[in-house]
Measured scan of single mutants.
Amino acid sequence: KKTCTFCKKEIWNTKDSVVAQTGSGGSFHEFCTSVCLSLYEAQQQ
């Protein structure tokens, strides 16, 4: 099972999830929504 990098909820429907390359290492992270992605990126600043 996949979990959201930001909120840690399980991702049930992968077509609704967002995968983004974030951080200095350029690793890929999966998020349940684009909202979680935005919040995660804001936290990394």
Rank of each mutant, 00 (worst) to 15 (best):
45 Q>H: 14
14 T>R: 12
31 F>S: 02
20 A>N: 02
41 E>P: 04
1 K>N: 14
33 T>W: 00
41 E>V: 03
41 E>M: 03
14 T>M: 03
17 S>T: 01
14 T>N: 06
23 G>T: 07
38 S>Q: 14
35 V>K: 12
36 C>L: 00
2 K>H: 01
15 K>T: 14
43 Q>V: 05
8 K>C: 11
27 S>P: 13
26 G>R: 10
5 T>I: 09
14 T>W: 03
23 G>R: 09
21 Q>V: 04
24 S>W: 05
41 E>H: 04
16 D>V: 04
35 V>I: 04
29 H>K: 08
42 A>L: 05
14 T>P: 15
6 F>G: 09
45 Q>G: 07
26 G>Q: 09
10 E>H: 02
34 S>D: 12
26 G>E: 12
21 Q>D: 10
30 E>K: 07
6 F>P: 01
5 T>K: 06
43 Q>Y: 02
25 G>T: 08
3 T>D: 14
6 F>W: 07
12 W>A: 11
30 E>N: 06
20 A>L: 06
34 S>W: 02
40 Y>K: 09
2 K>N: 02
32 C>Y: 00
33 T>C: 11
21 Q>T: 10
15 K>Q: 11
32 C>P: 01
20 A>D: 06
22 T>M: 11
18 V>F: 08
34 S>F: 02
39 L>F: 05
6 F>V: 07
37 L>P: 03
33 T>E: 10
5 T>G: 06
32 C>R: 00
41 E>A: 05
19 V>T: 14
25 G>N: 04
22 T>F: 03
43 Q>G: 14
35 V>P: 09
13 N>Q: 15
43 Q>L: 05
40 Y>M: 10
20 A>P: 14
39 L>V: 08
32 C>N: 01
14 T>S: 10
29 H>M: 09
16 D>P: 15
40 Y>F: 14
26 G>C: 07
13 N>F: 06
11 I>H: 08
7 C>W: 00
25 G>R: 12
20 A>S: 13
21 Q>G: 13
18 V>W: 02
39 L>Q: 15
31 F>A: 03
21 Q>E: 15
9 K>M: 06
30 E>G: 10
13 N>E: 15
9 K>C: 02
22 T>V: 08
33 T>A: 11
30 E>M: 05
33 T>D: 11
19 V>S: 09
44 Q>G: 14
8 K>N: 10
30 E>Y: 05
29 H>V: 12
42 A>C: 05
31 F>I: 02
9 K>S: 08
35 V>G: 10
30 E>D: 15
4 C>F: 01
44 Q>F: 06
42 A>M: 05
29 H>L: 05
4 C>N: 00
18 V>D: 12
27 S>F: 13
8 K>A: 05
11 I>F: 10
14 T>E: 15
36 C>N: 02
38 S>P: 04
20 A>V: 09
10 E>L: 07
3 T>R: 04
37 L>E: 13
33 T>I: 01
38 S>N: 08
40 Y>E: 09
7 C>F: 00
23 G>S: 13
28 F>A: 15
23 G>E: 10
9 K>I: 14
24 S>N: 07
40 Y>A: 12
3 T>G: 07
7 C>I: 00
10 E>I: 08
42 A>P: 12
36 C>M: 01
10 E>G: 05
22 T>L: 07
7 C>N: 01
31 F>C: 08
1 K>L: 06
8 K>G: 06
39 L>H: 08
13 N>M: 10
45 Q>K: 15
37 L>I: 03
36 C>S: 01
27 S>A: 12
23 G>V: 08
28 F>V: 13
36 C>Q: 01
4 C>M: 00
2 K>E: 08
12 W>M: 15
12 W>C: 00
11 I>Q: 05
39 L>T: 12
24 S>K: 09
18 V>E: 14
30 E>H: 14
39 L>C: 06
33 T>M: 03
45 Q>W: 14
27 S>H: 10
43 Q>R: 14
38 S>A: 10
13 N>W: 04
28 F>S: 15
42 A>D: 08
37 L>D: 07
16 D>K: 03
13 N>K: 15
7 C>S: 00
34 S>P: 07
43 Q>A: 12
28 F>W: 04
40 Y>T: 07
28 F>Q: 15
4 C>Y: 00
42 A>T: 10
3 T>P: 03
7 C>A: 00
5 T>Q: 04
43 Q>H: 12
6 F>C: 03
9 K>V: 09
5 T>A: 06
35 V>W: 02
38 S>G: 12
2 K>Y: 08
25 G>V: 11
39 L>A: 14
23 G>C: 09
44 Q>H: 11
5 T>S: 08
24 S>M: 08
6 F>K: 12
39 L>S: 12
14 T>Y: 11
17 S>P: 01
16 D>R: 05
19 V>W: 07
4 C>R: 00
40 Y>S: 10
21 Q>N: 09
16 D>Y: 03
41 E>F: 01
38 S>R: 11
14 T>L: 15
21 Q>K: 09
16 D>W: 02
44 Q>A: 14
5 T>E: 09
35 V>Y: 06
35 V>F: 14
28 F>H: 15
10 E>K: 06
2 K>V: 11
11 I>W: 05
28 F>K: 15
18 V>L: 08
5 T>D: 06
28 F>I: 08
2 K>T: 07
45 Q>M: 01
41 E>W: 01
16 D>S: 13
44 Q>N: 09
30 E>I: 11
1 K>S: 05
41 E>Y: 01
40 Y>G: 08
22 T>Q: 09
44 Q>K: 09
29 H>F: 06
45 Q>I: 07
42 A>G: 13
45 Q>V: 10
4 C>T: 00
10 E>S: 09
44 Q>P: 10
7 C>Y: 00
26 G>T: 13
13 N>T: 15
7 C>P: 01
10 E>A: 07
1 K>C: 06
8 K>L: 10
44 Q>R: 12
25 G>F: 04
40 Y>W: 14
7 C>R: 00
12 W>G: 15
29 H>P: 14
31 F>P: 03
35 V>A: 13
